[in-house]
Amino acid sequence: MYRPLKFHTFPILGLFLILAGVFPGSPVGAADPDPKNGAYILTAAGCVGCHTTKKNREEGRLLSGGRMLKTPFGVFYSPNITPDPEHGLGKWTEANFIEAMRNGKNPDGEHYLPVFPYTSFTKITDKDMRDLWAHLKARPALADANIPHGAPLIFRMRFTIGPWKMINFKAGAFEPRQDQNAEWNRGAYLVNALSHCGECHTPRNLMGGLKSTMYHAGAKDGPEGEPIPNVTMDKATGIGEWSVNDLDTLFSMGMLPDGDFVGGGMAEVVENISKLTADDRKAIITYIRTVPAINNKIK
């Protein structure tokens, strides 16, 4: 027989609904990932640049890998990171993705070669990693097969990467500095965790690790053989004479103070940075202008 619900059952039902909302089946306290922020992180981190060939990019087929990266350590080909189950990340879990970004390891526990800049990406917050993963797995799957690396064997031996990481890699998310304001910290996070500027602008030692004492001081033989400018605040050899507006013009349209426009890898970077919010560009500039000056002439 049908019995009407008694009035006092409603508060109990309400309590249940509230509890269900607080603990939606994911790790306690973690909010649902936001793929929209993930798309923004994808831009800030410049993922499309390395993980897409020029031809595919023109056709709008993004992130299926295959781009040749000619580095001083040999030739590498970026992998497919679309959700394709065979060639891409289709079988990955969120935990697999976070392990790759945070610790530089694939789902089999093998080390990634540091041409994948997990040395920077390790600094990305958990939230941004989860959002990025939510965005990546919602993208169209493209069945492009991966190309084996062409680098000399010594730079492809993954077991050598373990010791390399002990010296050149420190896992862990970015921690804001208490003695700096929110804008500076946001800039430091964007520069060091997401946009990974130092991966090109900081020179490398013979092992391929970043020389931390030469942070942002430029490199004569950057990726793809380009000389990479010194972007510390040194007046003679860096960007110490640049104004805030000079930096903003570079990041928003790619123009240098002399009216020339950047080409090469930095043109790709500008494509991404120019799509960030004006506040984020301002934060990047605020941070960059506090990087200690190092006298290092590149050309």
Binding site: M253, G254, G264, A267
Partner: peptide, 22 residues
């Protein structure tokens, strides 16, 4: 308009059709 010219023309051309600095 200047940003559009800079990114769409100057930047695109220097990226795809100008040799990188050596």
């Amino acid at each position: 308009a200047m940003g559009n010219l800079g990114k769409d023309s100057c930047g695109t051309c220097h990226k795809d059709y100008r040799m990188k600095e050596k």
